[in-house]
């Protein structure tokens, strides 16, 4: 564990907590894409399949449970909780996110480190996570203005993988044989997709107004 990865995990944790705070306290998911949340639930479900077979550390297992629990409960809230579901912008959240799943699965079947069931699904989760934010970014452009909490959520979610990139650079220089092109490229693509959001975020958010 290094400071970059810890910062990345804490940023990721903060993003799900901000979203849960918004949904649970003010019972609103305005501006939040259910489709992105569904994709993230699939990402964690396919990435953490080894949660019961391979134990890394208490921290690792605890965080996996937090991300699994939070992503599925956010989907449940947005789909089935009456008050929250009412604030879901169904008409605007129309990105065909299932069209992202199949290409990621095919790509994982073609490009992976090991051709095993767990490894292919794990690689699939990396590819899917890289594009999972697309429905949310499209919704963001349609709804123009979003509230601060949603803006913070997207910022933290984009930032965590950026910190992971620093972690990979650090581990590359400090650990022999630490080379994982698939993880690195997927993480880079994921972070680059946030580029224009970060641009507007810093322009607007730091200026004290909402994100437009």
């Amino acid at each position: 564990m290094n400071i970059f990865r810890l910062a990345g995990d804490m940023t990721h944790l903060a993003s799900v907590l901000v979203l849960l705070l918004k949904i649970h306290t003010i019972k609103s998911c305005a501006g939040v894409s259910l489709r992105t949340q569904e994709l993230y639930a699939i990402v964690f479900a396919t990435r953490y399949l080894d949660i019961f077979t391979s134990f890394v550390s208490v921290y690792n297992t605890f965080m996996k449970l937090v991300f699994l629990g939070s992503s599925f409960s956010i989907v449940w809230y947005m789909r089935y909780h009456k008050a929250v579901h009412r604030t879901y912008d169904r008409e605007q959240d129309t990105f065909r996110h299932w069209f992202l799943v199949l290409p990621c699965l095919v790509l994982a079947l073609l490009i992976h480190e090991k051709f095993t069931f767990l490894e292919v699904l794990w690689t699939f989760s990396l590819y899917l996570e890289a594009v999972a934010i697309l429905p949310q970014l499209v919704l963001l452009q349609r709804t123009r203005n979003i509230d601060n909490l949603t803006g913070q959520y997207i910022f933290l979610l984009g930032g965590y993988r950026g910190l992971y990139i620093l972690n990979w650079i650090y581990r590359y220089f400090t650990e022999p044989h630490f080379v994982h092109w698939i993880t690195w490229i997927a993480g880079l693509v994921q972070t680059l997709l946030y580029a224009d959001f970060f641009y507007y975020y810093f322009l607007r958010f730091i200026g004290g107004r909402g994100v437009e």
Binding site: H12, S54, V56, N60, E113, Y164, E175, H177, V179, T183
Partner: peptide
């Protein structure tokens, strides 16, 4: 092995 190393990340 090196693959286990990868799996120590979230």
């Amino acid at each position: 092995s090196k693959n286990d190393v990868t799996k120590d990340e979230l």
